[in-house]
Computed example of a mutant assay.
Amino acid sequence: MPDLPQLLLFVAAGWLLNLTPGPDVLYIVSHGLRGGARAGMVAALGIVGGCFVHVFAAAAGLSALLATSATAFTVVKWIGAAYLLWMGVKLLFSRTGRLNLGDGAPPETDLWAVWRRGFLTNVLNPKVALFFLAFVPQFIRPDAAHPALSFLLLGVLFNLNSLPINLGYAWLAAWAARRLHTLQRAMGWMDRAAGALFIGFGLRLAFTDHPSSRA
C-alpha cells in the first residue's frame, strides 16, 4: 500500500475523476432526472457494481503482468499512457457537458432493470478495465511484497470512494432538474480539471520504467 501522502492523493484523484462527466455520470443523472433520486441511486450502485468486477479481474492477473518481460511491460505501459493522454486532451478541450435526458420516456419504475443495465454497461466496457490497469498501479510501490493484493485493496477503495460522488450526482439530478444550465457549466469546469489530471497521469506512466530496470 502507498504511504499516507500517496494514499491521500489517490483518494483526491478518485474523487475528481468520479466528478468528471462521462457515460457513467450521464447514466446516473439521466435516471435521476427522469425517475427521481431513488432511480438515480440505484443506477449509481449498478455502475459501481460493474467496477468491482473489473477490479477483481485485474487483480487476479496483475502478478503475471508485473512479472512479464520488459517488452510486454513497455507495450502495456504505452497503451495505458496513450489512453490516459487521449482522455485528458478530449476532456481538456471539450465543450461544456450536455446532459442526455433521453427521449421523453416515462420514469423508470423497474429498479432492478436500472441496476442491471448500469452493471452490464460497465462490465462490458473494456475501457473501464484499461482505466484500472493504467491508473491504480501508479500508486503501488515497485517493491511491494504483494502487488496483486495492493491492487485489489486500492481498487476496492477507489470504488467505495466513488459512492458518495455517484450517489450525490443522483440526488443532485433529482433536485436540480430545473437548474440544468448551472449544472452544465459546473460539468464543463470539471471536464477541464479532470482532463489536466489525465494528461499528468498519462505522462507519468509514459516515463515509468519496468521494475526490473531499477535493480
Rank of each mutant, 00 (worst) to 15 (best):
T74Q: 13
N125V: 01
R38P: 05
N159M: 06
V25E: 08
K77I: 11
R116H: 06
S63Y: 06
K90F: 07
L16P: 02
G118D: 00
G97N: 03
L45E: 05
F56Q: 02
P2T: 09
Q6F: 14
V42D: 06
L111E: 09
L172I: 10
A67K: 10
F10D: 02
L16K: 01
F201K: 09
M87V: 11
G188C: 10
L45G: 11
V123Y: 03
A174S: 15
T71W: 12
Q184A: 13
C51R: 08
A12D: 08
G36F: 14
G168W: 03
V48F: 03
I165L: 06
L91S: 13
A60W: 14
M1S: 13
W189C: 09
D191Q: 10
R34I: 08
A193R: 02
N166W: 06
L66I: 15
H54P: 01
S150E: 12
F201M: 14
M190G: 00
V48N: 08
W112P: 00
G200P: 07
R95V: 10
A64G: 10
N159S: 11
T71A: 14
S30N: 14
G195T: 09
A58G: 14
A177S: 14
A43W: 07
V156W: 05
T121R: 12
G22C: 08
F151V: 04
C51T: 10
L133C: 00
L91V: 09
L183N: 05
L62K: 01
F158G: 01
G50W: 04
H210D: 13
L16D: 00
G46E: 10
R116C: 05
L7T: 13
W78R: 09
F132C: 01
F139D: 09
W15A: 11
A145I: 08
W171S: 12
W171V: 12
F198I: 06
L154F: 02
L203M: 12
S213W: 15
V114I: 11
F119K: 02
R116E: 05
F52W: 14
A13G: 08
L19D: 07
G36C: 13
L84F: 05
A105W: 02
A67P: 06
G50I: 05
V89P: 01
W15S: 03
